[in-house]
């Protein structure tokens, strides 16, 4: 009995990882010889990381039984404000770039928190369902950014910020090629470690699952459900802020109509592929990371094989439905 149980749990735990491994092999074959190149793998990881960071916060929100459609718009809004602030600091201090970047990034994360908190308050105190609230704030923040920039873009005046966006750490060499971890990838993995730990080892994480599973039971069990939900959105907001800061640095500019466009759906897709239940109550941070990588692997491998982007979209849709179907079958 216990032996079979142990086996089952292992499959549940590592199934997604095995799938990712299989996909990696498949991608190496289909995307031969480009996919497997270290340079490409670094690219793929970096490409995943911006949505990935948002997906981490989204995982918390979805576990709590909610949804956040506003993340892409919020990213554009906070990035716009952050770059404006950065440019202002540059002028005020006569070109102190380090101070400007620190200030700008802080503003983005803080504003991310504020917007997340706004969503959280409307949902918990206003008693409006998350879908509606975030649908509303999605529109509000997207158009607020468009209004601010007159649908144009905010270019950062700091060259260093752009350099920061492309910077890497932990450089080492594979064969004759230098490989290193881009800062956004590092940030994503570090955040994932923190959030996964939070989810598994703290009261808050436990309460989050309880609220998502059955809010009434949680309420009767003396869990302050409003507070738990509020923080899910606030944490998500901070993740969005961090992602926006990194993405803005990558481009060193914020184009208000395009920045973060559609990232809410990618983040939700990655979260769901990672095994988090749409209905809430159950989810995994590392699963989400795997989901993010899977989506990007598939996209990259098909791109390398020269498949049209329209068909890539078709494959992506099939993968989303298929992975959830497999998870259902396993239960």
């Amino acid at each position: 009995m216990s032996a079979t149980t142990a086996k089952k749990i292992d499959l549940e735990k590592y199934g997604a990882l095995i799938a990712l491994g299989a996909l990696f092999v498949l991608a190496s074959i289909i995307g031969w010889p480009y996919f497997i190149r270290p340079e490409n793998l670094v690219n793929v990881m970096r490409q995943s990381s911006y949505t990935g960071i948002i997906a981490l916060g989204m995982t918390f929100v979805i576990i709590s039984g909610g949804i956040d459609l506003s993340v892409g718009a919020v990213a554009a809004f906070v990035a716009s404000c952050g770059v404006l602030f950065m440019n202002w600091v540059l002028q005020a201090t006569g070109g102190n770039e380090v101070l400007a970047i620190l200030g700008g990034v802080s503003v983005m994360i803080a504003l991310g928190f504020v917007t997340g908190a706004l969503n959280g308050l409307l949902i918990t105190k206003g008693k409006i369902v998350p879908f509606i609230v975030t649908l509303g704030t999605m529109s509000i923040f997207r158009y607020l950014s468009l209004q601010m920039a007159n649908a144009g873009e905010f270019a950062s005046q700091s060259q260093l910020y752009g350099t920061f966006g492309m910077s890497k750490i932990f450089e080492f060499t594979v064969g004759d090629q230098a490989v290193s971890l881009p800062v956004p990838v590092f940030t994503m993995l570090a955040l994932a470690a923190i959030l996964a730990f939070l989810l598994d080892n703290t009261r808050y994480g436990r309460y989050l699952c309880a609220v998502g599973s059955n809010a009434r039971v949680a309420q009767y069990s003396a869990v302050r459900i409003d507070r738990v939900r509020f923080w899910a959105y606030a944490i998500n907001g901070m993740c969005v802020g961090a992602s926006a800061a990194l993405l803005a640095a990558r481009f060193n500019t914020v184009s208000t109509p395009n920045f973060g466009l559609g990232s809410e759906l990618d983040a939700i897709a990655a979260t769901i592929i990672g095994g988090t239940a749409m209905a809430g109550g159950r989810g995994s941070i590392w699963g989400t990371i795997i989901g993010v990588f899977m989506l990007q692997f598939i996209q990259n491998m098909l791109n390398m094989a020269g498949l049209s982007p329209y068909l890539q979209g078709v494959v992506k849709g099939i993968v989303i439905i298929g992975s959830v179907y497999i998870q259902k079958q396993r239960q």
Binding site: Y34, E39, N43, E153, F251, N252, N258, Q299, N303
Partner: peptide
Amino acid sequence: VNQQVADIEDLLVKKVDALVVFPHDTSVTS
């Protein structure tokens, strides 16, 4: 534009000799 940047990265991995870019917006600058 995110996808476009990824596409260009992929093309660079494939070691193209020339690159033609019709940008979504200036985010492709870097």
